[in-house]
Computed example of a mutant assay.
Amino acid sequence: MTSTATLYTDEDMSALVATLLKARGLDITTVPEQGAIGKTDSEQLEFASGVGRCILTHNRVDFERLHLQYIVEGKEHGGIIIVPQKNAYEVARRVGILVHTLTASEIKNQLLYA
């Protein structure tokens, strides 16, 4: 049995993306839902990691750096999916394909591009 990754959208991700992914049956929560608006990228990744969620973001530069930092420090995260800034429907389509193609364990600790 395979498990689907649970997701957490970064603050820069449109709320519509989360709505569209929820409509596809994915387990997703957002920064506003978690009361985490204004937290740093590092804090967002730490939260997502602590609850076993893969973070979705448009912020390539900061999250590539954080991923490398986690590797160097031997820390684990639930995965990072970087998506180019496109319309919400295209972002949801790309993420949906990726999350339905890979299991949660295949996404864990990976830096992926959708």
Rank of each mutant, 00 (worst) to 15 (best):
L16N: 11
Y113P: 01
E90N: 09
V51T: 13
Y89H: 11
L112I: 02
R65K: 13
Q69C: 06
Y8K: 01
R24A: 15
N87A: 12
A92T: 02
E43P: 05
H67R: 09
T2M: 15
N109R: 06
Q69G: 04
I81L: 15
D62Y: 07
S14G: 02
L16D: 13
Q85R: 14
C54S: 14
S42D: 15
L45N: 03
T101W: 00
D12H: 11
M13H: 04
Y89M: 10
D12E: 15
V72G: 02
E43R: 03
A18G: 07
G96R: 06
I37A: 12
T57C: 15
F47E: 12
K108V: 04
T57Q: 13
P32C: 10
G35Y: 03
P32K: 10
T57W: 07
Y8M: 05
T101I: 00
D12N: 15
L56S: 06
T40A: 15
L111T: 01
D27G: 03
L7V: 01
I107F: 07
T2L: 15
V83I: 13
E76F: 12
Y70W: 08
E64H: 10
K108R: 15
H77G: 07
T29D: 13
I28S: 04
R24I: 01
H77E: 08
A114N: 06
A23L: 13
L45D: 05
V99G: 05
Q34H: 04
D27I: 03
G74Q: 05
A104D: 03
L20Q: 12
D41P: 07
L16E: 15
G79M: 06
C54F: 02
H58L: 09
M13G: 02
L111Q: 03
T2E: 14
K22L: 12
